[in-house]
C-alpha cells in the first residue's frame, strides 16, 4: 500500500470564515500577520516569482511565489529537505464571509511514511491507549 513511488499527493483544508476576502488576504500576505498564524518567521511579499523563507524552531521551508490574484488566489512552492510541494490558497466570497481553501500538493523524495516529527492524531491516540493498557497490569 505504501509503495515508494513519487506520485503527487495532496492535503486539502477548507473552512467557512466569517470575514470578507480582503481581510483574509491581508492576513495571508502581510509578513507580520503571517508570522502570527503560521508561527514561522518569514520575508514574504506577494510578488510573483519572489523567493522567500519560512523558519521555525522545528525547521525551515524554501518558497517561491507562483501566483498572486489579490483577494482570490495565492500560491507558492513549499520545499523542505525532502518534500517538494505547492501551497494554493483560494478565497471564495460567500453570503456570510469567505470560503477559504488551502491545498498543498507534492511528493516526498522517497515518499517514505513520515515517522518522526510533529504531533499526529494517531500518535496521541496510541499514547492514551498505551497508558490505559499500562494501568491494567
Amino acid at each position: 500500500m505504501n509503495e515508494t513511488t513519487t506520485e503527487t499527493r495532496s492535503v486539502v483544508v477548507e473552512r467557512e470564515i466569517p470575514y470578507p476576502p480582503e481581510k483574509i488576504w491581508r492576513a495571508l500576505t502581510q509578513s507580520h500577520l503571517i508570522e502570527e498564524w503560521l508561527m514561522m518567521k518569514n520575508d514574504f511579499k506577494p510578488d510573483k516569482g519572489r523567493h522567500f523563507n519560512l523558519s521555525a524552531d522545528w525547521g525551515a521551508v524554501d518558497c517561491q511565489v507562483q501566483a498572486v490574484e489579490p483577494t482570490k488566489t495565492l500560491s507558492y512552492t513549499w520545499d523542505t529537505k525532502d518534500l517538494r510541494s505547492v501551497v494554493t490558497w483560494t478565497l471564495t466570497p460567500t453570503s456570510t464571509g469567505t470560503h477559504l481553501r488551502m491545498e498543498q500538493s507534492g511528493f516526498r523524495a522517497d515518499q517514505r511514511p513520515y515517522y518522526q516529527g510533529a504531533t499526529v492524531g494517531w500518535r496521541k491516540f496510541f499514547a492514551n491507549l498505551e497508558q490505559v493498557l499500562a494501568r491494567l497490569d
Partner: peptide, 18 residues
Amino acid sequence: MDWTSEMAGFWEARFDHL
C-alpha cells in the same frame, strides 16, 4: 501515515490560529 497526514494536522492548527 505519510506526509499528507502529517501536514493535515499542521494546517488544521494554522487555520485555528488564523
